[in-house]
Design a protein around this nucleic acid. Structure first.
Lengths: 206, 206, 206, 206
DNA sequence: ACCTAAGCGAGACGGTACGTCTCGTCTTGCG
DNA sequence: CGCAAGACGAGACGTACCGTCTCGCTTAGGT
């Protein structure tokens, strides 16, 4: 990224050197992009970033913590608009999330994180923390809809966000991010309107 | 399983020794049950099965192949009853699925396969095949419900099964298999009735 | 040594803070006493002395320099009495030397210096200087004995001191400082009377 | 040593590959020769021998064990002849030992071993075992002399060997392997005849 | 009845990565 | 300018597995 002949980074005193953090995150991202998760090791990141391993371990207690930081560092371009109607909001959200996961390294990084969490206890914890935060954030779409009176007062926004995220995660994990608009809309419809037969046979009551 | 003092297995001539295969699969399964995917290594399986590593590599070209064999060997005991009402069927299904995942190696095995599928192409293919089959199978609950007129004719059973499976998978992957009955019932309700506000504020239209 | 709750030392201006030097030397000494040379690292000394590593490096350019300073700081309490008879003098000398090496940091410090001198040129020089001095000093026991006519006029006091010191050093280096009195007396006897068979079969000629 | 393009060594079955052992010992020796003890690390040996670190740890439990093996592997050209007279035997022994220590890597290797033993517990043990063996071996010179009636029956051969070895070790450790013949002869004389003044003033009783 | 072929357990091999330790250098911010 | 503090790049430590190899054995099946 910089010129290869750059000077070795040094300590800048008894505080974190942001250059090192930057170099480490960049190296991690590049490795994930070039060689996938298989090529991603603390050793390799250190080598590429010209950083000492202890420097990485100092700031990222585990591989996943680093991975999550790389994931977070991706420029987000997710459409979280919660202006309603809710079905439109959800469609836009899923559409833009799938696109980002498809077209940037973010998707593969997040897949790696989920995979790692199946092996490593601390990874599982880190993922749980992260996904709870994300869930809470997404829940705002449902909260706004509830305030607008669009969805039933009894709806639990977090539960709804959980359901929504599950749908997205599993599509990511099974390489099905290329669903067409109709499939996504249909999934949203099931979440919002359910599937029970009614007077108008499942049409929205209103 | 057998007595610990058993004789060392030997070759039974120029053909595969089924006792060894059995011992290897059993050891693998036990490791997955006891320590999860983290404790699952060819080295550990060989040690526990008192088998040579080459014997494992001879018959299972990769870790994933062994994993998949262990998975296939699992006995399923899931309640797929589709007698209706559909919400009851779904509740029973999730309940028994979560229990099996919690109490047998199946959960850890399945988690492992999902994790491995993020890296390994074979695993991805196997997972795709398997999950499509499972989805189709689960879809029967919704098909039956449709035939009984319980759910709207427009409901896509596979799509519904996909949604249901996503909810289950993500709970497995994030160590949330211990949801109480009310949470499961609430998730089922969201799938079946949706969340939109109606004349009776979210009550089922019928 | 001091109360653990003491305030952090600070600079006392643009000159060396003797408190820090003192704390560093004390910490180094304590570490050598407690854990031997294995536990002696600049890192550990700094930690224990609550000093910054650069402070140590500022005043002691190398590990060896600090080691030598710690050694010089040791109080000696060796019985150098040269009143005769010479075998008694030598026995008392070895006895008190072994005791001091066993019971104070001096033994570990000296071992460390010898070890370091095998690698480090400065240490080798310092050790050579020191040991020559010590040899000359010890030689006085033999000189006095010669003046008293106790030992042969041809005896080279420095050579004898060298032999004596060698015996002591090697016992230090091989953890054999706990020899009983008889073993020490026997060693002294070999030095003084030799081992050749004589008219009275090894008895002193006189 | 061999041509650099040699094939990678492989396992030769469930038993030690002597080629690997050889390559490791050669690499270790070369490193000690070229860079001294400072450049000697398991890591470096493995790199140079094109061996895996575990292969080294499998056969040499510690750095010193390897070091000792390298030392033992040196072609020995020590004159252990015990034909008498004993003073001649001892002179020849010391002379040839000093020469070997001076002119081959053996001296520096042995210095390293002694140094390492000051730090590492297992090293100390290994050195103790080795030096006891060597002492017992050297003691034979004195035993033979005793059988010939040359030295007093009360002489303890091991004690004498200890004294002799101490003199040699300390000369090695303090870079004094270049003593001239007279100094060595004089040291031997002190061991054999002692220093006490006698009727003939220290002359041999016989 | 012999011989060959392949499977078996065992375990060593060259590697790579792990997470921790200490090294000696550097900067900061306070006094 | 000295000081405590502590981050930094570097690299060794000893361990765990990886996937491959060869050994010495055992048995089955073809001749």
């Amino acid at each position: 990224v910089k010129n290869g002949a750059e000077k070795a980074r040094r300590s800048i005193g008894a505080k974190r050197n942001p250059d090192s953090a930057e170099a480490i995150l960049e190296a991690a991202e590049a490795l994930l992009l070039e060689a996938g998760y298989a090529g991603f090791s603390i050793e390799a990141v250190a080598r590429r970033a010209r950083a000492g391993k202890p420097t990485i371990y100092r700031w990222w207690p585990s591989k996943v913590a680093l991975l999550l930081d790389v994931y977070r560092r991706q420029k987000r371009d997710i459409d979280y608009s919660d202006t309603g109607p809710v079905e439109q909001d959800l469609f836009r959200f899923l559409k833009s999330l799938f696109r980002q996961w498809r077209e940037t390294p973010a998707g593969n990084i997040f897949r790696s994180i989920i995979a790692e969490a199946q092996t490593d206890e601390t990874a599982a914890k880190a993922l749980a923390d992260y996904s709870q935060g994300a869930r809470r954030y997404t829940a705002r779409i449902f909260e706004q809809a509830r305030e607008r009176g669009e969805v039933a007062a009894a709806t639990d926004p977090e539960q709804a966000a959980d359901m929504l995220a599950s749908y997205a995660w599993v599509h990511l994990l099974t390489n099905r991010l290329d669903e067409d608009d109709e499939a996504i809309r249909s999934a949203v419809r099931m979440l919002t309107r359910g599937m029970l037969a009614g007077p108008s046979d499942g049409a929205p009551p209103a």
